[in-house]
Simulated scan of single mutants.
Amino acid sequence: MQEVGENETAVTEFILIGWSGRPKSRMVLMTVFIISYFITVLGNGLIVVVVICDPRLHNPMYFFLCNLSIIDLCLTTTSLPQSIANCLVDRPVMSLAACYAQMYSILLFGTTECFFLAVMAYDRYIAISNPLRYTLIINRTVCILLATSTWMAAFLITVAPCLAKPARFCGNNEVDHIGCEFKSMFKLICTDTSMSQISVYFTSTLSLILPLSFILFSYMRILAAIVRMHSEGGRMKAFSTCGSHLAVVTMYYGTAIFVYLFPQNENTHEMEKVLAAFSAVLTPMFNPLVYTLRNQEVLGALKRLLGNKKPGITY
């Protein structure tokens, strides 16, 4: 703590009390975090390696899937190792700089994933509704432009405003969470937060509701395109590809909307803490499982990679 005024004390560190006094719960949580982190790194890491190494997967769909895996790796590495360490202590302490870095990183990677899932829905819409012109519309330049735009948009919406006008913390420095989660940190700001609350809900709507609306619109068009298909095999392949993406979208957006958009009260506070703790765990862990177990091309590429068999064709 540093004295900044007669009755104010600037916060230089935070005490994370979200799971204080519950050693058994922390041990269970730590075990889940360790297993989840191992599966996430292994699964997403394999997807990145397979997509890069196998020329058969050098197309827009797997380019976006590879990027999604990289985002998931960044998101979990930002939060899980520190959360695992925090589980070992009843009242863990994090410096102001470490809390800021973790909070901004989670916001950046989480928002980027929201936008990327929307981009992947657009990619599937073009592939199914206009397959003959797919490679012309979603070419290499467009792929790079879409990927870059999602990162830039996420940065401008989440991190840039925080850097332009940093929050000031004074007095209470106890965070009711296992890590430096945004909503829990927001309660400790010692300045007037009425305008900031409006800004937060606006940003949350922009990064959650708008991409989700775009995804739903894309799938309405996709469904219409599938219904018009004459080939039963084509329909099944389209449903399989879209089913994987929809499963991830439902899991990710469902959790994020409940945590960040629903008003918090005493009845839902504990549930929000649990969901917020697992939101950065479950989706990144299940993404590679959902996309690989339902995708024969990725499974085939993985078998070729593990068997050191070179693919016979290239794009």
Rank of each mutant, 00 (worst) to 15 (best):
T141D: 06
C143V: 06
L145I: 09
T148W: 06
S149T: 14
W151E: 05
W151I: 14
W151G: 08
M152I: 15
M152T: 15
A153C: 14
A153R: 07
A154M: 02
F155Q: 08
L156K: 06
I157E: 04
T158Y: 02
V159W: 02
A160S: 07
A160L: 14
A160T: 05
C162V: 10
C162G: 01
A164W: 15
A164D: 15
K165A: 12
A167G: 11
A167R: 13
C170N: 07
C170H: 00
G171F: 10
N173M: 04
N173Q: 07
N173A: 11
D176I: 14
H177C: 11
G179F: 13
G179Y: 14
G179I: 08
C180N: 09
C180Y: 09
E181G: 08
F182C: 07
S184I: 00
K187G: 04
C190D: 15
T191C: 09
D192V: 02
T193I: 11
S194R: 10
M195T: 06
S196R: 13
S196P: 03
S199H: 11
V200A: 01
Y201D: 11
Y201F: 08
F202L: 11
S204R: 02
T205L: 05
L206S: 14
L206N: 08
L206P: 03
S207K: 10
I209E: 06
L210G: 06
P211Q: 10
P211C: 13
L212W: 09
S213M: 11
F214Q: 06
I215D: 08
I215M: 11
I215C: 09
I215Q: 11
L216A: 09
L216F: 06
F217G: 01
S218G: 03
S218R: 01
S218P: 00
Y219F: 09
Y219R: 03
M220I: 03
R221M: 03
R221V: 02
I222H: 03
L223R: 08
L223C: 08
A224T: 11
A224R: 15
A224E: 10
A225M: 04
V227A: 09
V227E: 07
R228W: 01
M229H: 05
H230L: 12
S231V: 06
S231R: 07
E232C: 05
E232V: 15
G233K: 08
G234I: 03
G234L: 02
R235T: 02
A238T: 00
F239R: 00
C242F: 00
S244H: 02
S244N: 10
H245V: 01
H245Y: 01
